[in-house]
Design a protein around this nucleic acid. Structure first.
Lengths: 156, 156
DNA sequence: TATGCATCCTCTAGCCGCTAGAGGATCAAG
DNA sequence: CTTGATCCTCTAGCGGCTAGAGGATGCATA
């Protein structure tokens, strides 16, 4: 039943281009235990088989969907146990979905503020600049969230 | 013309509650040069006047609007020179606005994907789970951005 | 076979915007 | 005079990488 032909082995660079994950990132995933340490050549170079390729692709897809590495760890774990119920996977996805939804709402509120700001600026001196003025006076209009949270935190 | 009454002085804790910025954060802002080092008491405690209060409020408002500290540095600088033209302030705001807009679009695409995923999951075993399946197969549908960027990066 | 360049290795440090904690000094109230 | 809140400095950590030093291999070409 098991395959008699061993799967081809690739270097870390080949794996990187195959998956779209950068080389240092792959090593980083290994370091934090997301990826198992692969076998090495005599000279110490990593060799990856198809299973590793699939695992890394999974990770990459999950990252593209915005899951954090902890969630991905759980999802990988579930994926390794196909006989378990999938409730947990769904829960992770739905939690993430609600985070995303919330974040969108925050950013939309932010966008409204920002476009109002720059629309009102008529381009004179700073002393008359709406942008600067708003920053001086703005008291978090619709000041619902008092909870120390900085609304946006994105580095694309 | 200048006021004869000196403005009242407050401790860092009082400043913190007045502005909603936490004490360690205020010290952090000082450390990175966003806030000038204030005068101290004989025993070394920081004392803040009204100008410092205004400056910190400005910073907080700008953070709530999602500006990064570098942008805030520029905005503060502009705010200190009211005679300059406000084009730069506007440019900063508009750049930020377009970043926010872009991020919203990304997150909306993400949300679509995620809700499709969890909607399709019927709650059986992991082997039949759409969530896991998508992560295995997903090739970034509408795969426009190939540019190594992780779509979402948010810690609220 | 020599050479040169690409790729690989490990290790450390840096990015952003804080946050947490150690270990101690000082202050205000009772 | 004690208690507890606040303050001080300093260092380390978060997430998810990225960059660079300094060196060892591997592979193709002349």
């Amino acid at each position: 039943m098991a395959s008699s032909v061993p799967s081809p082995l690739r270097s870390i660079g080949t794996l990187a281009t195959a998956t779209g994950v950068k080389v240092p990132t792959i090593r980083f995933y290994e370091q934090i235990g997301l990826l198992a340490p692969p076998p090495r050549t005599a000279s110490g170079r990593r060799l990856y088989d198809d299973a590793a390729l699939r695992r890394l692709s999974f990770i990459r897809h999950a990252r593209q969907l915005g899951f954090d590495l902890d969630a991905i760890r759980s999802l990988l774990d579930l994926s390794d146990h196909p006989d378990r119920p999938c409730g947990e996977a769904n829960a992770i996805a739905e939690r993430h979905l609600s985070d995303v939804t919330e974040k969108i709402a925050q950013l939309q509120a932010l966008r409204t503020e920002l476009s109002r700001m720059s629309a009102e600026c008529a381009g004179g001196r700073v002393s008359a600049c709406k942008v600067i003025e708003v920053l001086h006076d703005h008291d978090l209009c619709a000041a619902e969230d008092h909870r120390a949270s900085t609304v946006a935190d994105f580095r694309a």
